Computed example of a mutant assay.
Amino acid sequence: MALHRDIFWVGRQWAVTGAGVQAVDQRLRGVLDIDVARLWDDAHVQSRRAKPGVNVEDFDKAVTMARSRHPQTPVLAPIIAQLEALGVIDTSPVESPVLPAMQLRAEGKLARFLPQWRIRR
C-alpha cells in the first residue's frame, strides 16, 4: 500500500502518516502497517514489533510519534450509559416494519409473450 498523503514523520524504516504507522519499504505492500484504529492495541503493536527484520528503535520511535499525533479515542460505553440515565437515548425496542411478500405477476403466462425491458442509452 502506498504511503498516505499526510506524512508527519519519516524514519529509516517507518513513517507516521495520516493512516497510522506505515513501513517506508513499499515492497512489503502494507503487511506490517498499523492503522490508526489499532494504534493503541498493545498486543497488535507488539506482534508487529516481533516480526523479523524490524528495526526496533525506529519502530518504537514511530509508535510514540504516532500515539502523540493520534490520541486514543475514548470508550463510548460510559458515555452511552450516562445518556441513557438522563433519558436522552430511548432504549425501548424498535419494531421493524413488516414488508409485504413479493408477488410475481407472471404466473400462468408464457415467458416468451412477456414484454422485455432494455436499458436505453
Rank of each mutant, 00 (worst) to 15 (best):
S68G: 10
P71C: 03
P71S: 05
T73Y: 08
T73K: 12
P74D: 10
V75N: 13
L76R: 02
L76K: 02
L76F: 01
A77N: 06
A77Q: 10
A77D: 08
I79D: 05
I79T: 15
I80M: 01
I80E: 00
I80H: 00
E84G: 05
E84K: 10
L86F: 05
L86N: 11
L86A: 11
L86E: 12
L86C: 08
L86R: 15
L86I: 07
G87W: 00
G87Q: 03
G87K: 06
G87H: 02
V88G: 02
V88N: 04
V88T: 10
V88W: 03
I89L: 02
D90Q: 06
E95L: 05
S96A: 12
S96T: 09
P97G: 07
P97T: 09
V98S: 12
V98N: 10
L99K: 15
L99W: 06
P100V: 04
A101W: 02
A101G: 11
M102K: 15
M102Y: 10
Q103C: 06
Q103G: 06
L104V: 11
L104N: 14
R105I: 14
E107K: 11
E107L: 12
E107Y: 09
G108P: 03
G108L: 01
L110C: 13
R112W: 11
R112N: 11
R112H: 14
R112A: 12
R112Y: 10
F113S: 15
L114C: 10
P115R: 08
P115K: 08
P115W: 02
Q116S: 11
Q116W: 07
W117K: 14
W117V: 14
